[in-house]
Design a protein around this nucleic acid. Structure first.
Lengths: 225, 225
DNA sequence: CATATATTGGACGCGCTCGTATAGGAAACA
DNA sequence: TGTTTCCTATACGAGCGCGTCCAATATATG
């Protein structure tokens, strides 16, 4: 097949085993460089359009080194997915200023601004699209990624809203559904339009304006009476 | 390149010129069969994963006939995009029961149910994803498709909401933005989860329930006081 | 009927990419 | 120092899909 669906074999983790053998150990920085280069390329071109030679060149490494670290293209892609998932979770856990000292509208706007700042970057949009393209062929990996990525965002946001409801700031039946609604309002069809390059990359100001507007609409529907 | 980005050359329209030359004219039914087969295949597999031979076989036609109707793979894809766009517009123009005799909530729920019934079909989800994959490489074609597809949906819905506002049923500043909100609430991240096969194809009941819930939230935010 | 074009089926060249093989040099252990 | 393993560079086999060529046949027009 010209561009086979990656079954994305077992991902080789970075700190797997200590270099306990004799002889020269594998250079983990080269490995990181390979993953970084592959991530960038997969992000902006998609799986099929990226050749292993291009990855090697971008990582300034011999192609054989790439195959030394990863059995095949699918395994490399698996490592990329893993890395992106980890990045997503890490980026989000630090975000929400859980304190209730400031206005809920202000806090939600801040969260939305940060989130959209990540999600609406053209590179990230392109990547998540390419990513989904491959994940659609591997349900197990897809589930793992969704849990670590979008699913985690949903869960964190749902907890956040549930807390606010517990404090009497919101009136909502299902936090999960409300989180869905807020995310839907935040995103709209901007990802589509950005992916198709119908609009330029949104500025920080535009992003904050969109986050704020969506929060206002959301609160009109969910604010406690 | 193994799977080149389709620049999607000029699309050959169906009723272009009458068969005014001497000799045997091209069989337009074969052409239609080719486009239909290609649409189905591109929908469920994506551009790179579909071979011209597969298209020919699915259309029960010789490969040479395919190349007789379309210069190359990109041109065939362009025809597919064109056809899908036309289908979308056609399907939507007949939808909204513009009469104001029934409840606005009921009417919007009906529109949303019909829309989601189209959009959330796993085949359509997969197709729109594959479609975007190629369109991301051809801005002109992307714009044309967006205008005919999602953009048109937005525009129609915005007009619909503006009408309702003119009748005093809604209170909204920007119909376009409100339409965005409603669409965002309708979709949520269901397309993502369906694309990744994390949830089975939604039943008609689930679709209507989702449409109704989203409309209720929307109206809480936008209903006239 | 004569003519021009469409369609078929098979075969094939071309270019591309994956993944492997090989050999020499580099770097980390003991 | 010696040994083991890694890294590089290059070449190469194998497979695959695009697009073309060809000879034979079918089907429309004038």
């Amino acid at each position: 097949m010209t561009s086979a669906p990656p079954s994305a074999g077992q991902v080789a983790l970075l700190p797997a085993r200590a270099p306990r053998g004799p002889g020269r150990p594998k250079d983990q920085r080269k490995r990181a460089a390979i993953v970084a280069a592959a991530t960038g390329l997969f992000m902006e071109r998609g799986y099929a359009e990226v050749t292993m030679e291009a990855v090697a060149a971008a990582a300034r490494v011999s192609k054989m080194t790439v195959y030394g670290h990863f059995r095949d293209k699918a395994a490399l892609f698996g490592a990329v997915v893993r890395g992106v998932s980890d990045q997503m979770t890490a980026a989000l856990t630090g975000l929400p200023p859980a304190g209730a000292e400031t206005d809920l509208e202000t806090r939600l706007t801040a969260v939305g601004t940060a989130l959209l700042g990540m999600i609406l970057s053209p590179r990230v949009v392109a990547m998540s699209h390419a990513l989904m393209g491959m994940l659609m062929k591997d349900r197990a990996l897809a589930a793992a990624f969704y849990e670590a990525g979008p699913g985690n965002v949903r869960a964190v946001l749902a907890r956040y809203l549930a807390d606010a409801a517990a404090q009497g700031l919101l009136r909502l039946d299902a936090p999960q559904a409300a989180a869905d609604d807020l995310l839907g309002l935040w995103e709209g069809d901007w990802p589509k339009r950005i992916a198709l390059a119908l609009v330029p990359a949104p500025s920080a100001g535009e992003i904050e304006a969109r986050a704020r507007r969506a929060v206002r609409v959301f609160l009109r529907a969910y604010r406690a009476a």
